[in-house]
Design a protein around this nucleic acid. Sequence first.
DNA 1: GACCGGTTTTGAACATCGTTCATTTTTTGA
DNA 2: TCAAAAAATGAACGATGTTCAAAACCGGTC
Lengths: 208, 208
Amino acid sequence: MNEKMTEAGVDRRTQLRERLIDAAQEAIAAQGLAGLKARDLATAAGCALGAIYTAFDDLDELILRVNARTLARLEFALDRALGDAEAEQALQTMARTYLNFARTEEPSWRALFEHRLPPGVATPQWYVDARNRLFNRLDAPLTQLLPGTGHVARAAFARTLFSAVHGVVALGLEEKIAETPPKLLDEQLEKLVRILADGLMMESARLI
Amino acid sequence: MNEKMTEAGVDRRTQLRERLIDAAQEAIAAQGLAGLKARDLATAAGCALGAIYTAFDDLDELILRVNARTLARLEFALDRALGDAEAEQALQTMARTYLNFARTEEPSWRALFEHRLPPGVATPQWYVDARNRLFNRLDAPLTQLLPGTGHVARAAFARTLFSAVHGVVALGLEEKIAETPPKLLDEQLEKLVRILADGLMMESARLI
DNA sequence: GACCGGTTTTGAACATCGTTCATTTTTTGA
DNA sequence: TCAAAAAATGAACGATGTTCAAAACCGGTC
């Protein structure tokens, strides 16, 4: 990517970046990561093929940009659904909202986890931060369910809880020949969270 | 793929298939799905580029064959580690073995979940069966922990449990900039399974 | 053992992909 | 107004998976 730039050029470049991210977002939302083609992108954004590489290093960077937007939408959905419920209810709502988001935006959501950077290339910090913000959403309910534990331990387990729910959603939506019926998946996810909440209560009872 | 074949041809074809699967397995084990290249494969198996397509429809079919072998190794690892422990211990051992397998064979294991067939193409039945055999491993311990429940409900929840553990392992091994430290991942997985086992006990206590 | 029909194998050719870079076009500033 | 700097362009490059006309091979027959 070029470094120097005149003043007017900054605006034009920013606009081009915007249009490219928009077009990429549309492509990924419709057909997933595999549907993102450089030439289609240039056509959709109304620029030349080579112009993509004046705005971004490569398609990987563009994908990360789209993924960051998807994460932002997911955060928004979680916050809106949450209100200020009780601890287990909050966990149930978040799990349910996560499943819902994955269902309604499946290709975009899947792109969050399918995409791999080339080996040796580090994920940019701004993307890591955006990802971590997700786990923080779990901190409040966990504080209720595990009053004694410190901040670090809680953060670690928040990630674990998220991963467990993600695993159920990810494999549940995988449509190998016989997809899990939607209703069954709903029930299973609720059951998992209920059992986790129960187990967490026992865990904290043990400490007293 | 061709249909008819003389008697001697069957053998030669089978041998070619074997050599190709071996070569593909090696490539995937070393460099993951992205490291599987048709031309390298032909060289490694000592055949012409086109010969690959006389043995398999396309690379997708070949990948499924390799994945089936990986599943078989995973099953073997689980069975060997299991012995006949108590219910929670059995779950702990299986989770631990799964994490271990993912660690020692990460590219092959990752290929199991990364690979996607082209849209509209159904997964062959033999592969679906191989996958489902995995979940059955959880049936025995679950029977101990949830004595009252029927076979279908147990099978469904076995899949859910597996998915939860898989989620923790998969995201835990993802090495975005700061990978989860191995020891922390060990602890978190054990904690998750302990909490699940506790929660399951409460679940079954409620039914009495 | 020379010939022929059918099988099987071959790898050059094709279509498509991300990426580059010499060239052209546009913008800038004196 | 015009030369120098910046930006945009798209043909060309090097990979990729897949195909298919041609070559090589095989088994039976005279």
